[in-house]
Design a protein around this nucleic acid. Structure first.
Lengths: 140, 140
DNA sequence: TGAATTTAGTTGACTTGGAAAGCAAATTCA
DNA sequence: TGAATTTGCTTTCCAAGTCAACTAAATTCA
């Protein structure tokens, strides 16, 4: 039986948008209690990983366009979470660094994200979570 | 081998965001050539389906919060794509209607969306597209 | 009935995001 | 070498989204 109530239900792009919206909303609510944006958390995780990243690389990994990252970083700097450092090799490049406060905050936030992620994974049968992830990462 | 370059790669929520971003960007570019927003297309598809929808119902189906829908509809009205009609049963409710122009534009845009969706589905082995959709719609 | 509450949608102040232009360092090549 | 081009990041201007407050219609119930 394919009683489709929603005319958009056949579109993969719509299913993706709906799922993304649902997940993002939950996560946003949770992180708002910590006073932080999802994107800011992503930036901090990338920084914590160690390898020095230019703003450009960071933007790609954190899923932001360069201007959006620039502005987010401005805010994070004034919140004392990160600071900019001009790269020595290429003076145009910026290496962003976590402050101690930034690292502490990141560890707190990470708890929440992982808990949320766990709750999400529980909506699937054992293998399906990994399968979904595998399928998603095939995209573009 | 699980050489994870991106520290966020283990998170399902991140994989979802990344996939959503990729798909949305492609679709946005394509629809921009038609001078229309993805959300506006969703609204028009919902309207075309026939059943009269309140703004509230429409917001849910089109994946928008009520204020965002209100403002989008303002724009669509001034573009001549839809018009508001006060519901007879409940005077607080609005039934949105497609204009003739709106219907024509919707049919054009639908072509593009379906082509994009087809291109997306082609990134998967035969069964996997449907499988992905099935998994996505399990969420929340 | 009619005062109090709930529901539907919109508005306003503020924040964030995108496109295109801008600036400065690095690189190319004549 | 030094003018022209490219690259990395930021800024500006404007479009769009959020949260919270607001208006008005409908419903509840004393």
């Amino acid at each position: 039986m394919t009683t489709e109530l929603n005319p958009l239900g056949n579109h993969l792009s719509y299913a993706l948008a709906a799922a993304h919206r649902a997940v993002t909303q939950l996560l946003t609510v949770r992180l708002k209690k910590q006073g932080i944006q999802i994107e800011a958390w992503r930036v901090m995780e990338c920084l914590d990983a160690g390898t020095k990243l230019s703003m450009g690389e960071l933007a790609k990994q954190a899923l932001l366009n360069p201007p959006a990252l620039s502005k987010l970083v401005d805010r994070m700097v004034s919140d004392g979470l990160v600071h900019r450092q001009i790269a020595t090799a290429d003076q145009r490049q910026i290496n962003l660094l976590l402050t101690n406060l930034g690292r502490r905050r990141m560890l707190q936030v990470r708890q929440d994200v992982e808990e949320e992620d766990r709750a999400l994974a529980e909506q699937f049968d054992t293998k399906d979570g990994a399968l979904l992830m595998q399928l998603l990462s095939q995209i573009s």
